[in-house]
Design a binder for these strands. Structure first.
Lengths: 150, 150
DNA sequence: CTACAATATTTGTATATACAAATGTATTCG
DNA sequence: CGAATACATTTGTATATACAAATATTGTAG
């Protein structure tokens, strides 16, 4: 559906505005679907991503700033996000011995089990939501987004 | 910059995940820049969009549900958003005579003046932020996003 | 070794958003 | 008419986010 029809504007948008509005709208549309998917597991996307980052560390714990720089959306408050994961039992936090300003955050067995359950669900979701795009389409979209940010 | 480098993952992402992550990341990147731009005018993007919608009405007032269906990101709370615009003096709200469940919201002269000042700034911003994309690129991006939502 | 700057995280506060329930009004149907 | 239902908006509440300030720790220059 054309973006002009979605936001019900009579006048055609200038090309650059149309692309930006479409980008914002589509991101919202995707996020809605992701949230619906994750709601069943009582976790938010940022929380899920932190778990994935920690698992990617292969048992080497990460500190807060490492997590922050790897997040898709830059978090203003990673402390409280980690707090929530701790309350759920998915991660643990210990103060770094070598530098007591730092904290070391690592995934628990419970967190790993959770990921083992939810990761395939998300992978399946990603495939479903992009099913209308061919491999070339996906590559092209990826390149255009990179180019936009250049 | 490749999305894998941005989120510092060692493994290459599957195509569909890469596109989705890139979409979310790029939208965040754009929103950050929009917020910086609008901050000087002490207004948020949803608020700005409501003003544009009301101006598009050409003095015909809109009710809340009309505004909601035209918003890019579906608002869960348009009442309080309009409250803020009223406090700023940019819009006014009167109860609809024919159907007192409805309210009629319209832009004030002050709101029109504000838009006259800020709209060119935003148009200029939109052109700047898309300057690396050709007309074909923008059309292509637009089509790919439409296709994704199909 | 002490004061000062730099680093890493945490906390406070204001604002934003999501979702559900409540309010007030209009319509319909016996 | 009066009860039930539908409609349009508002309010309550819990959670999320942005940003600034505070805290705690380490490194460094004199």
């Amino acid at each position: 559906m054309k973006i002009e029809d979605i936001i019900k504007t009579e006048v055609e948008l200038p090309l650059s505005r149309r692309a930006i509005v479409n980008l914002l709208y589509t991101e919202n549309w995707v996020m809605d679907k992701i949230n619906i998917e994750l709601k069943a597991y009582d976790i938010s996307l940022p929380q899920f991503n932190v778990l994935r980052i920690l698992q990617g560390q292969k048992d080497k714990p990460a500190n807060l700033s490492t997590i922050q720089e790897r997040m898709v959306s830059k978090m203003s408050n990673t402390t409280r996000l980690v707090d929530k994961l701790i309350r759920k039992g998915y991660v643990k936090r210990i103060i770094c011995k070598s530098n007591r300003r730092k904290v070391e955050i690592s995934i628990t067995e419970e967190g790993k089990d959770f990921l083992k359950k939810v990761s395939p669900v998300m992978t399946d979701f990603e495939n479903r939501i992009t099913r209308n795009l061919s491999r070339e389409d996906l590559n092209l979209l990826n390149e255009l987004l990179n180019k936009l940010r250049t």
